[in-house]
Structures are given as structure tokens and as C-alpha cells.
């Protein structure tokens, strides 16, 4: 019995032990479960957060997609614009090419007309030369014959003629002399445009002294008083500038011939770019109303009876000054003398 009991007890014990073990195991398992549940809850919470995040990200994606759609639209519009511009540019280029062609055409036309004009000008110059030649030969010959026979008439038959006849001979003589001067003046005038200009630095005082010296020498009774100031050097053609001064000085002498005391002042004023030379006399002067005529070919403001002349001298002077790139003008009062001014540029060109 005891044994049985013992065995039973033993069994019971074992069973209890096992129970205890199971209980312990269960407790552990419970604990584990509890932990696992906790973990699950944690994950669930985390998942919820992650879900929220995802939702947010999706929202952002949608936003971006919308923005992208807008940007795409914009891009498409810009592309369209670009194409438009490209087309416009192509059209503008075409127009430019056309315009360039037109400009070339116009340039060619211009060049042609310049060539044509130059040829015309050359032709005109040649004709002018032919006219000069004709004047010097064909006009001079009959004049030479008139003067020649007039001289012979005077020489051989003067004594046979009455006073009136002798006067006629004198009149023919002075008329032919005048015509000879006219022809020479014309030749000189036509020469100005044909001859080449050689510009040098000129000593104006030297030129003026050279021209006034013989006048002073011939002025035995000291009627003429020259006052010549220091004149600046200027660039010019020696021969032409000598002709300018010669004509102006002769002019001053001519129109002071009735004065008992002649005063001629020659001087200059220097500006920044130009030099203005002047010659002033106390002669007959002229009416300023006709000042513009004074440099015109064959225009004279005084009668041949009062002052001889051809009306070529001052026209020649103006032409010479113009060829030098300068200007000439005059101021006067009738009976109080005249002042002639001409300007020259300071530089060599």
C-alpha cells in the first residue's frame, strides 16, 4: 500500500512538477505573448506613422505631378514660341539678304554713275582745254594782225592822217590791248583748274615783299605807303599764292591811283584752325550792295574810264583760294577804301 501510495504520490508529485513546469512555461509564454503584443502595438503605431508619411508623400507626388503638368504646358508653349521666333528670324534673314542685294545693286549703280560723271567731267575738262587752245591760237592770231597793221599804219601813214584819224589809231590800239589782256586773263583763269597744286609751307612775307618791291622802287615821289605786318606761314601752292597776292596788290594800287597819299596795309589774324590774311587800301572802294558781284567773272563795279580792268583778276583769286579750301570776302565803303580778306586752313591737307 504504501508503495502504491508512494507511487501515486510520486506520480502526483511528478504531475505537479509537470504542472508547475507547464505553468512556468505558460507564464513565460504569456510573458512572451505580452511582449509580442506590445511589439505588435509598437509596429502598428509605427505603421500608422509610416502610413501617414506615405499618404503625405503621395500627396506631394500628386502636387509635383500637377506642377510638372503645368511646367510641361509652359514648356510646350515656350517651344511653340521658339518655333514662331525661328520662323520670324528666318523671314527677317531673308529680308536682310534681299536688302543686302539691294544695297549692292545701289552701290553698283552709284559706282557706275560716279564713273559716268567722272568720264563726263574728264570730257568737259578736255573740251575746256580745247577751248583754251583755240582761244590762245585762233583768237590771238586775228588780234595780232589787227595790232600789227595798226602799228604799221601808225608808223608809215600817221603823218597823212588828220588828228581824228590818228585818234582812231590810238583807240584801236587801246581796244586791242584790252582784248589781249582779256584773252590772257581767260587763259590764266582756265589754267587754274587744270594745273596740279603743289602745297608747301609758304613764307607769305617773302611773297608780298617780292611783289611790293618793284612798286616801291617805281614810286619815286613816295606816294604809296605800304605797312606790311608779320604774316604767319601757310600751306599753299607757291605759284598760285603769288598770283593771289599779285592780283590783290595790283587791285589796291589800281583803285588808289587818284589818291595823293596811298596807304596799303597787309596783315593777318590767326584763329585756331585758320589764318585770315588781309589787304586794306584807302582807295575808291565799292558799294557793299554789289559785294557779291565783285568776285564774279567779267563783273566790274567801276567804269573802264575810271579804272581799267578785265573783271578776271578777282574771279581768278577766288578760284585760287577755293582750290586751297579757303574763303575770300571783301568789305568797303565808297570813297573810303576796301579791305580784302582770305582765309587758309592751317593744316597741310
Amino acid at each position: 500500500m504504501n508503495d502504491i501510495f508512494y507511487k501515486q504520490t510520486q506520480d502526483d508529485l511528478k504531475k505537479n512538477e509537470e504542472k508547475a513546469d507547464r505553468a512556468a512555461e505558460l507564464s513565460v509564454a504569456n510573458k512572451k505573448l505580452a511582449f509580442q503584443n506590445e511589439e505588435k502595438d509598437k509596429r502598428a503605431a509605427e505603421l500608422a506613422v509610416a502610413n501617414k508619411e506615405l499618404a503625405f508623400q503621395n500627396e506631394e507626388k500628386d502636387k509635383r505631378a500637377a506642377e510638372l503638368a503645368v511646367a510641361n504646358k509652359e514648356l510646350a508653349f515656350q517651344n511653340e514660341e521658339k518655333d514662331k521666333r525661328a520662323a520670324e528670324l528666318a523671314a527677317a534673314n531673308k529680308e536682310l539678304v534681299i536688302k543686302k542685294e539691294r544695297i549692292k545693286e545701289l552701290n553698283d549703280q552709284l559706282e557706275n554713275s560716279v564713273k559716268e560723271r567722272t568720264a563726263q567731267l574728264e570730257h568737259a575738262n578736255k573740251e575746256l582745254e580745247a577751248v583754251s587752245y583755240s582761244i590762245s591760237h585762233d583768237l590771238k592770231a586775228p588780234l595780232r594782225h589787227i595790232t600789227g597793221y595798226n602799228s604799221l599804219l601808225e608808223k608809215k601813214y600817221k603823218d597823212l592822217l588828220p588828228a581824228e584819224g590818228r585818234q582812231y589809231i590810238d583807240n584801236i590800239s587801246s581796244a586791242t590791248k584790252n582784248m589781249a589782256e582779256l584773252i590772257d586773263g581767260l587763259l590764266q583763269f582756265s589754267k587754274i583748274n587744270r594745273i596740279e597744286m603743289k602745297k608747301d609751307l609758304l613764307n607769305m612775307n617773302q611773297i608780298v615783299d617780292m611783289l611790293t618791291w618793284p612798286i616801291k622802287e617805281g614810286d619815286i615821289d613816295n606816294r604809296i605807303e605800304f605797312s606790311i605786318e608779320a604774316l604767319p606761314l601757310a600751306y599753299g601752292d607757291l605759284e598760285m599764292m603769288t598770283s593771289v597776292w599779285s592780283n590783290l596788290i595790283e587791285n589796291a594800287i589800281k583803285f588808289t591811283k587818284n589818291k595823293n597819299l596811298v596807304k596799303i596795309i597787309i596783315g593777318a589774324e590767326e584763329n585756331e584752325n585758320t589764318i585770315i590774311y588781309y589787304i586794306k587800301d584807302n582807295g575808291a572802294g565799292f558799294d557793299m550792295n554789289y559785294a557779291s558781284k565783285i568776285f564774279t567773272m567779267f563783273q566790274r563795279l567801276h567804269s573802264q574810264k575810271d579804272f581799267e580792268g578785265t573783271g578776271i583778276g578777282l574771279a581768278t583769286v577766288q578760284r585760287l583760294i577755293t582750290r586751297h579750301g579757303g574763303k575770300i570776302w571783301a568789305e568797303s565803303k565808297v570813297g573810303e577804301g576796301a579791305s580784302f580778306y582770305f582765309s587758309l586752313i592751317k593744316t597741310e591737307g
Binding site: 590771238k140 595780232r144 595790232t147 586791242t176 590791248k177 589781249a180
Partner: peptide
């Protein structure tokens, strides 16, 4: 140069 007046000639 052929002169214009007889004296020069």
C-alpha cells in the same frame, strides 16, 4: 612766242 603787238614782233 608770237607777239600780239608789232613792236614786240
Amino acid at each position: 612766242v608770237k607777239p600780239v603787238d608789232f613792236l614786240s614782233l
